[in-house]
């Protein structure tokens, strides 16, 4: 059960963030960036598929990737609250992306050494994608942070607003703890350090101030979410819910 939950945490993170990013498709600030954001969304949803497929194997109940994505309710989703937050403006989206990309990069890098061969293989493949994502979002934070007065304020505002959702990245769930002990999962304490180093460096170049230590939200990994997730699921799961059992 711990392995299953552990896989779902990451699968849900990538699906929900991919779903959020795909809302940009057709509405980007410039055609080139519309395409770039969609590439990241495609990568993330692709990662979610691999992970869900593996989770169904582990679960062994004959469910499919789509059952997991479309037929679970809010309390069953284990994504961190950061990824379900609204897109806001381009700066908000990029700050959210940057926070997650830096985590994701170090997460997969460590997961490559997992004792679980399937997870290690997924990590190797995903790391290539995420290496590009985290370079892309880092650059945009620098560009917007150290761009115009307006862009600086917008990014600083988004950083201030989203900061309280970053703590949860490093709070181990029961599954995190068990998988770390089993040599399957990654050490979130170590990742926290690497994450903080990268974020600090990028913020410095972007002339963005790191928020003071503040109250951190948590609970996503255990199924406690913000109001956003309900709407995301209502939208995403509509057809599967309205026509149970139909093939598409």
């Amino acid at each position: 059960m711990n392995l299953y939950n552990y896989i779902l945490q990451q699968a849900d993170n990538t699906l929900i963030l991919g779903q959020r990013l795909s809302e940009w498709c057709g509405h980007g600030p410039v055609l080139e960036q519309d395409i770039a954001l969609t590439n990241i969304a495609l990568d993330l949803i692709g990662q979610a598929r691999s992970l869900y497929q593996y989770a169904t194997e582990i679960e062994g109940k004959g469910r499919t990737e789509d059952d997991l994505a479309f037929l679970r309710d809010v309390w069953d989703f284990k994504n961190i609250q950061l990824v379900e937050q609204a897109n806001g403006h381009f700066g908000t989206t990029l700050v959210r992306q940057f926070f997650f990309d830096v985590f994701n990069f170090h997460f997969y890098r460590a997961l490559q050494n997992s004792k679980d061969e399937t997870l290690a293989a997924i990590a190797v493949k995903s790391l290539k994608e995420v290496t590009y994502h985290h370079r892309y979002s880092s650059e945009w934070i620098i560009r917007l942070g150290d761009g115009t007065e307006e862009s600086h304020q917008k990014v600083q505002g988004a950083v201030n607003d989203l900061w309280m959702f970053t703590g949860e990245l490093f709070v181990p769930s029961t599954a995190d703890q068990a998988m770390l002990e089993a040599g399957i999962g990654v050490d979130l304490e170590k990742i926290k350090q690497l994450w903080m180093e990268k974020v600090t460096a990028v913020f410095q170049e972007a002339t963005i101030r790191k928020p003071e230590d503040t109250w951190m939200q948590k609970g996503g990994k255990e199924g406690k979410h913000t109001e956003h997730l309900g709407f995301i699921l209502a939208d995403m799961q509509f057809l599967q819910r309205a026509y149970p059992g139909a093939k598409w």
């Binding site: 410039v30 055609l31 080139e32 395409i35 770039a36 590439n39 590009y132 892309y136 650059e139 560009r143």
Partner: peptide, 20 residues
């Protein structure tokens, strides 16, 4: 061709647009 603010961005946009 494509539009970009600087060479670095042009490189990345090219990757995203022309090597999908």
């Amino acid at each position: 061709s494509l539009h970009a603010a600087d060479a670095q961005m042009a490189m990345e946009n090219a990757r995203d647009v022309y090597t999908r």
